Computed example of a mutant assay.
Amino acid sequence: MPAYHSALNEVPDVRQVGNLAVLPIKSKYRGPAPMADPSEADIIDETLDLFRANSLFRNFEIKGPADRLLIILILFVSDCIAKIGAAKTVPNQLEATKLLNTLAVDNFPVPGDATFALNAHYAPPGAGQMLVNYLRGYLTQIRQELASRLVEKLYADGTGKPSKWWMSFQKRRFMNRSLGS
């Protein structure tokens, strides 16, 4: 059974930085990401929908620039769940929001950096620090929005504890990789 790929690979005229798609998102955070139509699913919705199924796969064939962004976001969700699972006490929703927002804005490597875990699959952003800063700003904004929506999903049942159906994936590594954040 093949892994699930992004439906946004087929969107025409998508801006790319390196070979990573810069897709519009529905966000409440400031940043360089284009705004998406609120009535349609964005890459973050798609990531949350595909995370649990795709995290079972060790191999993932990249079919387009949106798949490259999907990989980064799935690995970030995995790191977020591992961070919540590693806490000494089970965090409530507010504590989890603070924990994951801090993780989202912490300094992290981008494609092209020597410490980026998946450099073999990603092209550097291009010449000039301006593109690197743009990509870092875009990824920071998308990570913040993803962390926010993930907390909403994790604590949706109202018990004050993260969902065991999501937390069961804390030790799983998509493609046996981690972003190392």
Rank of each mutant, 00 (worst) to 15 (best):
Y138C: 09
Y29L: 01
K171L: 07
A36Y: 10
S78A: 14
H5M: 01
D106R: 14
K153Y: 05
P125M: 11
R177E: 14
V90H: 12
M35K: 13
R172T: 12
Q129R: 11
A156K: 13
D42K: 00
D106P: 00
L69F: 10
P38K: 04
L56G: 10
L69S: 02
F76L: 07
R30K: 10
D13M: 05
P2E: 12
E40L: 06
N107V: 07
S6K: 10
K26D: 07
L8Y: 14
S148H: 15
P12W: 10
E46T: 06
P12D: 04
P125K: 12
V17T: 13
S178A: 15
L139H: 07
Q144W: 00
R30I: 02
P2C: 01
N9Y: 11
M167E: 04
F108D: 03
A33E: 02
S148E: 09
K164D: 09
V11Q: 13
L70F: 07
G137S: 15
L48C: 05
A21P: 06
G160M: 05
D157K: 09
I74R: 05
H5V: 05
P32Q: 04
A36G: 05
R172C: 03
L73I: 04
T47L: 05
N101A: 10
I43A: 01
S178G: 14
L20P: 04
Q170H: 14
I142Y: 01
K88H: 11
I43R: 00
Q129W: 04
P65L: 01
G158W: 06
A82D: 14
D67R: 10
A114N: 10
T102W: 04
M167A: 06
M35C: 02
E46A: 02
K28L: 02
P111H: 04
T140I: 02
C80L: 02
A127P: 08
S27V: 03
G180N: 13
R149L: 04
R68E: 06
P162D: 02
R136S: 14
P111F: 00
D79F: 07
P2N: 10
L135R: 04
K28H: 07
E61F: 06
W165L: 14
R136P: 04
P111S: 06
T115A: 15
A66C: 08
L139Y: 09
S27A: 10
V90I: 15
V11T: 15
T47V: 08
V22E: 11
R58F: 02
V77T: 14
F76S: 08
V14E: 08
E152Q: 12
A96G: 06
P109M: 02
F169K: 06
V110I: 15
R15F: 13
A36F: 06
G128C: 09
A21K: 07
N92K: 09
K63F: 02
L150V: 05
T140C: 07
R136Y: 12
E152N: 07
Y138T: 11
K153M: 09
N19S: 12
R58Q: 08
F60T: 04
S39Y: 11
N107G: 08
K153P: 00
P162L: 00
S78P: 05
G64S: 08
L118I: 08
G85H: 14
T102Y: 09
R149P: 02
N54D: 13
S181K: 11
P12C: 01
A104V: 03
V14A: 12
D37W: 00
N59G: 00
W165F: 13
A117N: 11
S39W: 08
D42R: 00
A36M: 05
L75W: 13
K88G: 10
S163V: 01
